[in-house]
């Protein structure tokens, strides 16, 4: 890990507001090797869609995580916010 580059990413996840969807996202994120640096989450009670902003970092390419989050049944979309994501060296 010493010379590895930790990249920071911001993910914007839209999901149906279903049971344990937040736990599922957090579990996948940890399991696939991404550190969670912060998050915001809110539900639009009108359409029951939740928007989750997830700030993560990892040496691994972000597609490894977005592909896996995308497979969760309740997820509507996952986007990497390129403006917010930035690189720094650990």
């Amino acid at each position: 890990m010493n010379t590895a580059t930790l990249n920071n990413y911001t993910l914007i996840i839209m999901t149906d507001d279903k049971q344990v969807v937040l736990e599922r996202i957090l579990q996948v994120t940890r399991y696939r090797g991404f550190l969670i640096n912060g998050m915001t989450a809110k539900v639009n009670t009108g359409n029951n869609i939740a928007t989750i902003e997830l700030f993560v970092s990892s040496e691994r390419p972000i597609s490894l995580l977005t592909d896996q989050i995308n497979k969760l049944v309740d997820i509507k979309s996952v986007k990497v916010d390129n403006n917010a994501s930035m690189q720094n060296t650990a």
Partner: peptide, 14 residues
């Protein structure tokens, strides 16, 4: 079991 199922199922319901 619902919580336990998260890491060992494709999906789960309660």
């Amino acid at each position: 079991i619902f919580g336990l199922s998260i890491a060992c199922t494709k999906h789960s319901f309660q």
